[in-house]
Each structure stands twice: as C-alpha cells, then as structure tokens.
Amino acid sequence: MTDAELFQQCHTVLPGHRARTPAQMFAAMAAWCEDNRVAHDVYGNGALIEAFEQKIADLLGLEAAVFCISGTMAQVTALRLACEDRASRLVALHPTSHIIVHEKSNYQLLGHFHALQTGDRHRPWSSADLRAIPDRLGAVAMEIPMRDIGGQNPPWEELEAIKAHCRTRNAHLHMDGARLWEAAAGYQRPLREIAAGFDSVYVSLYKGIGGLGGAMLAGRRAFVERAAEWFRREGGNVIHRSPYVVAAAMQFDARLAAMPHYFRRTEWLYGVLRDYPAIGVNPARPQANMLHLHLPVARERALAIRDRIAHEHQIWLFGRAAHGALPESSVVELYVGENLAALPDQRVRDSVELLARALAGR
C-alpha cells in the first residue's frame, strides 16, 4: 500500500490542515468566485489580484507586492536585483536556507549571485554571525521562522540587532517569510512590526494558507516592479493567476485569524510531549506552530512505525522522516494546523502514546 493510500484510510491525522480533494477545492473556489463576482486577471492585471497584492503589502507595512508563480523564482530574483543595486554579488545565507538546501543550486547554476554560508546550522542567526563577515555583502537573506531547525526564530532583540546591522552595512535585508504567518503568533507582534526593516519579503500563498500555490514578493514599489518584469522574462508570465489568488484569498483572513489558536495548541502539545522523554523536541519551547520530533530509531524504522500505526489504528502521525545526526536516530516535522487543533485532547494523547510504545518496541 502506498503512503497516499495509507493516509487516505486514516480517520485521525495529526499534522497540517484538512486535505481537500480537487473537487472540494474547486467547488469552494467556484462558490467564492460567484459570491464575489470574480473575473480572471489577464497577465496579472485585474481587480482581484491587484487588490490582494496591495492587501499583502499593507499587512507587511511595505509599499507594494506582486504575485509570483513560486517562491523559488521570487527569492533568487529579488536577491540578484538587490546585489545589482549594491554592486556586490555576495549574499549571506544560513546553512539551512531553503535556497541552499531545497533549490537544486539554482542561484549558482543560473548565475544569480554568490552564496556565503554563515552561522551555526543548528541555531538561528545572531548579529555577531553577520558582523564576523569581513566581505562587502550585497544582501542578507533570513528565513522567519527557520523551518529546517524546527521553526526556530532569533529572539526579538537579536532580530532588531540584525536589522540595524544590515542598515549600517548597506546590505539589502530580505526575508524568506514562507511561514511568516506562523511566526507572528510566536513573536506576539503584528506582521508589519516583524517586517519593518526588511527591504523585501517573500510570503507563500499555500504553505500555512492552504492555497493551490504561488507566492508574493513585497518591498519598495520600484523594486517590486523590476522584479515583476524579471518574473515575466524568467517564464512566470502566467496568463491567469486567478486560480492561485482565489484559492488563497478565499481563506486568507480565516487562516491568519486561526494562527494564534494553532500556536496555543502547539504549546499544549509540548506539555503532552514532556511525558515522553524518549521523544526529543526542537525547539525547547514553541516559537511557531511547528516543531521537530527527534526519534531514537533509524529513519526506516520511523517510517515503518508510522505505516504500521496508520494500518492498524487509522492514525497518521507524521509525513516524511529524515536521518538524524546520530546513528539509529531520525527527525520528523510536525506542523500544528487545522487537523490537530480540531482533535479531542485524549485522541492526541493516545496517538502520542502509540508512537512512544512503538519506539520502545512494545
């Protein structure tokens, strides 16, 4: 049985949001379009997309925003333009940056910029990490929160120090805000306060929002307009962006309003996990509604446990598993969203108990 088939048979799913079938998603989109008299945009020109772009910009306290078909295209383009503006092709990136880890060396193979890895891969950046770089930087790209280390964020004072350092150094500060919506609840600060001091911000329209795909790049109007032109040159000139915009816009406000609840549910989950010391949790305290579980079994064993519990109990504990740094260890990600928030407390406890017993070989 495939992973997808196992997942489909589960009545209890811990991570993420409720999965809609294409038919359910398209029906909801059609009804929303009917209610709001939505017309297609044409190459990005249209009432809905332009209003939604401005809504994102206003939320972030920035002048303008533009839709892009993917964050992968949006980020490297923004950083290349930032480097051109400052006559330096050097971009400081954390070792766990999405650009380095997940984007197949696009920045290098396509000649966008030169990447300089800095900082400890297990910790968020500090301003000291950036001060230690002797080179003239064109840009600094910072992920908030940092997904590959469990959703960690630098302390607020450190984030402010990083912003001040980039201003002093005249380095373009870019935010990989794929999960910025989640970080706001952890920081307990408005989105525009977090974004203040960043020269550009990328946000996802599908990760925490649950849309079909797509991204927004926000910043100064002139910068955003240049980026939009490059998106067209790079093959991102989709004739109708309305399916992506509708899928995000129709649930955007509700998703943002739910983020504090998801964060409180994450805090509650930490209390449950404290009863199972064999399951390591990173970070030590929640900083967004996501976390990593470090399991004392090899990756293959972790996946076998997941599949057995799904088959026998119809409970889906987690998605992918990664090899841990130590032998016979593995790491899984848990995103606390609509699913776990809606589950009864006891069912969540029982699910964690099943995992703990399986890890112990019982």
Results as ranks from 00 to 15, higher is better:
residue 204 S to F: 01
residue 165 H to Y: 13
residue 180 L to R: 14
residue 205 L to M: 12
residue 17 H to Y: 15
residue 133 I to V: 12
residue 360 A to Q: 13
residue 286 P to Q: 11
residue 215 A to Q: 06
residue 304 A to H: 03
residue 142 M to A: 09
residue 208 G to A: 09
residue 312 E to S: 11
residue 66 V to H: 09
residue 325 A to S: 12
residue 273 L to H: 05
residue 255 R to N: 09
residue 228 A to L: 10
residue 58 D to R: 13
residue 221 R to D: 12
residue 212 L to H: 03
residue 198 F to D: 02
residue 318 F to W: 05
residue 357 R to N: 15
residue 229 E to V: 07
residue 298 A to M: 03
residue 94 H to Q: 04
residue 18 R to D: 03
residue 355 L to C: 11
residue 195 A to R: 10
residue 148 D to V: 03
residue 331 V to H: 04
residue 151 G to D: 01
residue 144 I to H: 06
residue 31 A to I: 00
residue 201 V to R: 08
residue 151 G to Y: 01
residue 96 T to P: 00
residue 116 L to S: 12
residue 266 T to E: 02
residue 90 L to W: 00
residue 357 R to D: 08
residue 147 R to E: 12
residue 201 V to D: 02
residue 4 A to L: 10
residue 291 L to N: 11
residue 4 A to H: 11
residue 248 A to N: 07
residue 173 L to E: 01
residue 61 G to L: 02
residue 218 A to F: 03
residue 263 F to E: 07
residue 120 D to R: 07
residue 340 L to C: 13
residue 334 L to M: 14
residue 302 A to H: 06
residue 42 V to E: 12
residue 302 A to I: 07
residue 136 R to Y: 00
residue 183 A to S: 14
residue 297 V to T: 08
residue 340 L to S: 11
residue 9 Q to M: 06
residue 197 G to C: 07
residue 265 R to M: 02
residue 165 H to R: 09
residue 335 Y to V: 13
residue 35 D to Q: 15
residue 292 H to N: 14
residue 313 H to F: 03
residue 355 L to F: 02
residue 92 A to C: 07
residue 324 G to I: 04
residue 88 S to D: 02
residue 237 N to D: 11
residue 3 D to P: 15
residue 5 E to Q: 13
residue 326 L to G: 10
residue 311 H to L: 09
residue 35 D to L: 04
residue 24 Q to C: 04
residue 298 A to Q: 11
residue 353 E to C: 08
residue 50 E to C: 09
residue 270 Y to G: 06
residue 296 P to H: 14
residue 100 I to F: 13
residue 258 A to S: 15
residue 62 L to F: 01
residue 213 G to I: 06
residue 48 L to C: 09
residue 161 A to V: 05
residue 164 A to N: 11
residue 278 A to Y: 00
residue 307 D to C: 04
residue 55 K to V: 03
residue 110 L to M: 15
residue 212 L to N: 10
residue 289 N to V: 06
residue 310 A to E: 01
residue 6 L to I: 08
residue 317 L to P: 07
residue 142 M to F: 05
residue 191 L to A: 13
residue 53 E to M: 05
residue 332 V to W: 01
residue 252 F to I: 00
residue 56 I to Y: 06
residue 241 R to V: 07
residue 20 R to S: 14
residue 108 Q to W: 05
